[in-house]
């Protein structure tokens, strides 16, 4: 069976600055994959390329959904990619702060296929059925992440750990095959970190959603990821299981700052 994601030789430039240089990687279906690397290594650029926010100038990104033809990601708009089954969360929590917890998740749960004003006013049977389905799905997801009791809270009143869980619920609401998590543990305390690790594993095990993770917290990454890529200066410098990565000299150099010229291209 084809890999879920197939990224080959993408290069992303902003003017003269090369953010990603000839990056290739793949993700297997059902895998918890992590991308690590120092600040500015290109991790978030990679995420933005996978979700259509940035358009790499070279290379290709292919997403293979469970059903249907493989999809070429580059050149598609973010909302179209979202419909194909790719969801993400953000490094800095980006909730719709003025909406309730429930509404935040419901936005993702709605199909957005027909958002006509007339249908919304007349509320025909199709609209009502749609509405009922997205309500039910929203409640399920709030249960799943343990936020049912906070459904009617304004999102900005949630704690940091709760917001992280809400973001995961919102991402899952779009019914994705893969969930991209951008530093999900940033700013959380140790007990929240443990909860989050469990939740992420639960997303994969119970919902069958593959996970692609960017994270600075080594302990979390090493305990969660099944395979890792290491980025440095926009290039992949290592790939392997957590144990292999721990033993890799390139990685140690990149992180300790005693880097040789390797990886700098």
């Amino acid at each position: 069976m084809a890999n879920l994601f197939e990224v080959s030789n993408i290069t992303l430039r902003f003017g003269g600055v090369v953010s990603l240089s000839n990056v290739s990687l793949y993700q297997k279906r059902g895998e918890i994959l992590a991308v690590i690397g120092p600040n500015g290594a290109g991790k978030t650029s990679l995420f933005n390329s996978l979700t259509g926010v940035y358009q790499p100038q070279e290379g290709s990104i292919t997403f293979n959904p469970k059903e249907g033809e493989p999809i070429s990601i580059i050149g598609k708009k973010p909302h179209v990619i979202s419909h194909t089954g790719v969801a993400r969360t953000f490094q800095a929590s980006r909730m719709f702060n003025a909406l309730t917890t429930f509404e935040n998740v419901k936005i993702g749960a709605e199909s957005h296929k027909g958002i006509g004003a007339i249908g919304a006013i007349l509320r025909g049977p199709a609209t009502r059925k749609d509405e009922k389905y997205s309500d039910a799905r929203t409640w399920d997801l709030l249960d799943f992440v343990g936020l049912r009791a906070k459904a009617n809270y304004i999102a900005s009143s949630l704690s940091y750990g709760e917001r992280r869980r809400l973001e995961i619920a919102r991402g899952l609401a779009t019914n994705p095959e893969v969930l991209l998590l951008d530093e999900p543990a940033a700013g959380t305390n140790p007990s929240e970190k443990l909860e989050l690790t469990d939740l992420i594993r639960k997303v994969r095990d119970q919902m069958g959603v593959s996970i692609l993770l960017i994270e600075h917290d080594m302990k979390l990454v090493m305990s969660l990821a099944e395979r890792l890529y290491v980025l440095n200066f926009g290039s992949v410098i290592a790939e392997g299981t957590p144990d292999e990565i721990r033993a890799n000299q390139n990685v140690v150099d990149a992180y300790l700052g005693t880097t040789t010229a390797e990886g700098a291209n």
Binding site: S82, F90, I107, E110, H112
Partner: peptide
């Protein structure tokens, strides 16, 4: 309504809204 939530989400953070599957062009036109 769904349209209203789309409008409010685009008003708050259009980039995130589009990643949640909201069609920004259509929402702005509406």
């Amino acid at each position: 309504t769904k349209l209203g939530r789309s409008i409010r989400s685009v008003a708050q953070d259009s980039e995130t809204a589009s990643l949640m599957g909201v069609d920004i062009d259509r929402t702005i036109a509406m």
